[in-house]
Simulated assay, not measured.
Amino acid sequence: MNQERLMKVILAPVISEKATLVGETRKQVVFEVLPDATKAEIKAAVELLFKEQKVEVSAVNVVNVKGKEKRHGRFIGKRKSIKKAYVSLKGDGDINFVEGVA
């Protein structure tokens, strides 16, 4: 796999109530990923981005979330569809997103 491609696969971490609950109970982290990303690419990208923290991925589950239709007055629009990845970590591994910030 190309390293440039792997650096672009993960778009952002998902910060929500459900993502926090899943992180505490099941040792999983939730990311928003590219719509055409595969599970193998997501696993390699997480291990590449967080190799300083020695993160090892045991499993990746993927969910496609359809964008909602929304109205603004008489106009109808649609939010974009996203793909979320639930990444399970091996052992008692943990990802610290704030590390390195002064």
Rank of each mutant, 00 (worst) to 15 (best):
L48T: 08
V33H: 01
A59V: 10
K84G: 07
R79F: 10
H72R: 14
V62N: 12
A19E: 06
A44M: 05
V9N: 03
Q53F: 06
G23W: 01
F50D: 00
K43L: 07
K66M: 08
V29M: 06
T25A: 03
F75G: 04
I95T: 02
A37L: 02
R79D: 15
V33K: 01
Q28R: 11
N96C: 06
E47S: 09
K18H: 11
R71V: 13
K70Q: 09
A19D: 07
K8G: 10
E24H: 14
L34W: 04
H72V: 09
K8E: 15
L49G: 09
V22H: 13
V30K: 08
L49K: 08
R26N: 15
K83W: 07
I10H: 04
V33F: 10
R74M: 02
I76M: 05
K84C: 06
G23S: 11
L89R: 03
E69P: 02
A102L: 08
A59P: 01
A44N: 04
N64K: 10
S16G: 14
E52A: 12
A19S: 15
A102T: 09
G77N: 05
V62T: 15
E4V: 13
E99N: 07
L11D: 01
L48K: 02
I76T: 15
E69S: 11
Q28F: 11
K68A: 12
A19K: 06
K68C: 00
R5P: 01
A59T: 11
V57N: 03
A40W: 11
K39F: 04
R79A: 08
L49Q: 08
K51N: 15
E41Q: 08
E52R: 10
K43A: 05
S81K: 12
K54Y: 05
N2R: 12
H72G: 02
S88G: 05
V98H: 07
K66G: 11
L21F: 12
R5G: 08
F97H: 13
G23N: 14
N2T: 13
S88P: 04
A85G: 08
L11F: 00
N64Q: 15
V46G: 00
K54W: 06
K68P: 04
E99A: 15
V87Y: 01
R74E: 10
N2L: 02
R74P: 00
V55Y: 03
V65Q: 11
A85F: 10
K83G: 10
L11P: 02
A102G: 06
A85W: 09
F97S: 06
N61I: 02
H72S: 08
V14H: 05
I42L: 03
K51M: 15
E4P: 08
L48F: 10
T38I: 05
T20H: 09
Q3W: 02
D94T: 07
L34S: 07
R79H: 14
Y86T: 03
K43M: 09
K39V: 00
A45D: 01
N64H: 14
P35H: 06
E41R: 01
E32M: 14
V30P: 03
